[in-house]
Nucleic acid binder design. Structure first.
Lengths: 235, 235
DNA sequence: CGGGTAATTGAATCTCGTCAAGCTGGGTGG
DNA sequence: CCACCCAGCTTGACGAGATTCAATTACCCG
C-alpha cells in the first residue's frame, strides 16, 4: 500500500500488527483447502503462491498467482468454507491473520478499508481480463497474455523493466491457468519464440518488445492508470 | 442488503440517500462506455443489465449480468477510465451516484462498508467459477451453468423456486458470456433439452431437476452458505 | 551417476467454429 | 387485415484449432 499512498504512523502500525505472525511454507504446501472451514486470511511476504479450484473430473483451474505484499484468501471473507485452494509454488513466508482483523481495520482506519476495496476491484478487473482471454482469444494469445501479466506484476514490485523474469511455473501450470493442455502450451511457447515475441533460457523468459506482445495478445496492464483520488482522508 | 442483516435506521437512511436520483434507460442503452472517464457508479432498481468488454477484433466477452438491487460499475472504483461497458438488456431504472459516496459510506457506516467488501468477494467467487467454467468444462456444461446461475440469482430475488424463469437473452448473448458462438449455443441448448435437463417455451426456460443440472455442469450456488458473522457492529 | 519430473515432438481424433441456407415469429405499414 | 420484413433461431457440411495418446529427450536433484 505504501507504494500508492503515504501511510500515517497509525496506519503503518495497524498494518504491521496484521503481519505479526509468520509462517514458513515449503513449495507444494497447501495452506487453505477448498471447501474446508476458513477463519484466516494471509499476507504473502516471500515467494510465489497460487489459488485454484479442482473440478470433479480432476481437472484444475488456476485462478490467480500471488506475489509478495498481496493478501490471499479474501474470497473466503463472505463464506463459511473456502471457495478455493491456496498452494505454494515456491518456498514462501506467509502471515496468517483473522477475518475479524479486516473488519477492525475498516472501522479504525477507513482509508485503509477503502484502499482494500480498491485493490479488490483491481483484482476483479484482472480476473475479467482473464475471462475475456479464455472466452475470446486463441491459445497463443492466452499464453502470451499470461506471460505479460506475470512480467507486469513482477515489475510493479521490483521496478526493473528489462523484460526478463524467472518463470517459476511448469507448462502444466500455465495450461491450468489458461485453460489449455501442457502439450499445447509447449507448442504455443515455441510459436511465440519463433515469432520473435519471446526468448527462453534456463527457466527465464525475456519479452523483447512488451508493446508488441501486448498487441498480439490484447493485454491491458491493470496496474497502471489507477485513480485513488476518491479515498477518504486518513484518520 | 436488508435480506442478510437487520439495518439500523441510520444505515437505511444512508443507503436511501445513495438511491436518491433515478434514471430511466431503454433496452440497448449503454450507460458507461469502456475506456471513457468514469465518476459515477449505479444501483440497478428495475430491469436487467450486463457488463462486457470488446476485443480489437470485434468479439465481445460478457462479464456479468446484473439484477435489481445490485451495484454496477464497482470495478471502475480504482480507475480513472472504465474497464468495462454497462448496457441495458431490457428497459431499466438505475440510480447513479458518485464514487466518493462509497468512501463516505465506509467512513460513516463501517458495517455497510464491510458488507460491500463481502459482496465484492462473493462476486469474485462467481467470476472465478465462470473462469473455471470457460477454462475447464465443455460447451454443454458452460451453457447449463449459465442457465443455473441466472436461475439462482432470480430465485434469490423473488423467492420462487419452481425452476422456470424468463431467459431475457439471445443465444448470441449466451455465447458471448460463455465463450461460444451462437450456433454452438443453439446446439447445446437443444442437447440439454434432448437430455431432459431443461425445457424451453416462449422465451422461458424450465430446469426440471436443479440438482441434476448442477451435477452435469459442476455448478456451485455462491449465494448460499454465506458467513457474515465477522462483520463489525452497526455504528 | 542414476532417477524422476518436466519438456518436446508426432500422429490421430474430436470439439467447436465458420459458412451458408432456410425458418419462425412478432411488429409494421400499406 | 394481410403482406412484408427483420432479427433471432435452426440446421447441415466442412475445416481449423485444441486435445489425446504415445514416445523420446532434456534437465534438475540428491
Amino acid at each position: 500500500m505504501s507504494g500508492l499512498i503515504t501511510l500515517t504512523t497509525d496506519e503503518h502500525a495497524a498494518l504491521d500488527r496484521i503481519e505479526e505472525r509468520r509462517r514458513q511454507v515449503r513449495k507444494g504446501t497447501v495452506i487453505q483447502h477448498s471447501e474446508e472451514r476458513v477463519t484466516e486470511l494471509f499476507v504473502l511476504r516471500e515467494g510465489m503462491m497460487m489459488s485454484y479450484v479442482l473440478l470433479p473430473d480432476g481437472s484444475r483451474q488456476i485462478l490467480r498467482f500471488y506475489f509478495p505484499g498481496e493478501i490471499m484468501g479474501m474470497a473466503g471473507m463472505g463464506y463459511r468454507n473456502a471457495p478455493e485452494t491456496l498452494c505454494a509454488l515456491a518456498d514462501c513466508v506467509v502471515c496468517p491473520f483473522e477475518k475479524a482483523a479486516v473488519s477492525r481495520l475498516m472501522v479504525d482506519h477507513p482509508r485503509l478499508g477503502a484502499m482494500l476495496m480498491a485493490f479488490s476491484q483491481i483484482e476483479r478487473a484482472v480476473l475479467t481480463d482473464r475471462l475475456a482471454s479464455l472466452g475470446r482469444t486463441s491459445a497463443r494469445a492466452r499464453v502470451g497474455a499470461l506471460l505479460l501479466e506475470l512480467h507486469n506484476r513482477l515489475r510493479a514490485r521490483d521496478g526493473r523493466g528489462n523484460g526478463t523474469f524467472p518463470l517459476g511455473l511448469t507448462q502444466e501450470e500455465i495450461g491450468d491457468a489458461t485453460g489449455l493442455t501442457s502439450v499445447h502450451v509447449n507448442r504455443m511457447l515455441r510459436q511465440l519464440e519463433e515469432d520473435g515475441l519471446i526468448t527462453r533460457e534456463a527457466g527465464h523468459v525475456t519479452i523483447g518488445d512488451v508493446a508488441a506482445l501486448a498487441r498480439a495478445t490484447h493485454h491491458v496492464d491493470r496496474y497502471a492508470a489507477l485513480d485513488l483520488s476518491w479515498l477518504p482522508p486518513a484518520r
